[in-house]
Design a protein around this nucleic acid. Structure first.
Lengths: 153, 153
DNA sequence: GCTAAAATGACAATATATTGTCAAAATCAC
DNA sequence: GTGATTTTGACAATATATTGTCATTTTAGC
């Protein structure tokens, strides 16, 4: 009946559950931060990726851990709303590059300004040191999971 | 241009991003763990909630941080597949209680057995102590975010 | 160069999630 | 107890995400 986990296994299980819960709240917070600029978390992510460096839809998908098709959908919305344009790619005829327009840059800057206030307050409340320590563990978990494969059965 | 965050704000921002990335992987892992039992993360969550104590759809929604309607959809699938039944609720005529069938219990046990192996391995790899410490920070962040409201503009 | 393989965007179908509305039932205020 | 408010499940509409297929283009192997 009970799953008879080791103490370390228990620790990982509660860690994982708390991560999933926090991620839900962070997603909600991200949407709230992006909303005044008429955006969402997903659109913010794509804007930020394209701002970091012009890239194709497929590139952004890989960088963000989203599917190619999901990014495509969001990018088409961003283009429709005039936040990005698809620019010719000298290195690839088919894969156009997403480039932020002035409007896109303004929207991203507005979101980032709000995010800074929010992150500063939470960083202050939680403390830089423990955040850095926790981030290390989270990243270690990321790497451990990536090299861990779950058997089909 | 740059968001001029404090060091603590930077620490929180990178913490948040790593949390979101890890959550994506955990979601994928959860689906993989549930798949051999013919389930998904969402269905597993609802099964586990109903197993912990018979509860209504709305109760489960609150407990899991899901919308009432989302749980309803999943619960109807679970009922259709014979993993739960809706039992009469003496305290509430309308809100039936979700109760696991033998098949539902078997499916949940199978998932939990696989989850235990997986969690034990990752717990061992990462270390119980750092996991407990990181969990503390994650929970602190949860509480801090819950009491933090993001202004509308 | 030429061929086989992989990547890319377009398109479609399906699955999942969110949001809103409604009537019935429960809870609360008094 | 009575009326107002809230909760609950049902239903629907929309939004978002996933999965699969296809033709075109690029990359890799030789």
């Amino acid at each position: 009946m009970s799953p008879d986990r080791t103490p370390a296994g228990d620790a990982f299980a509660t860690f994982a559950i708390s991560i999933l819960r926090l991620a839900g709240h962070l997603q909600t917070a991200g949407d709230a931060l992006a909303k005044p600029a008429g955006q969402t978390s997903a659109r913010w992510q794509v804007l930020a990726a394209a701002d970091h460096a012009p890239m194709s839809v497929a590139d952004a998908g890989r960088a963000l851990g989203m599917t190619r098709q999901g990014v495509q959908r969001v990018a088409d919305l961003l283009e429709r709303d005039g936040l990005i344009v698809y620019a010719e790619n000298p290195a690839h005829q088919r894969a156009k590059l997403m480039v932020l327009t002035d409007g896109g840059k303004a929207a991203l800057a507005a979101i980032r300004a709000r995010q800074a206030v929010w992150a500063d307050a939470l960083g202050e409340a939680l403390g830089e040191k423990v955040l850095l320590q926790a981030t290390e563990t989270v990243i270690a978990a990321l790497q451990a999971i990536e090299k861990q494969s779950i058997p089909e059965r």
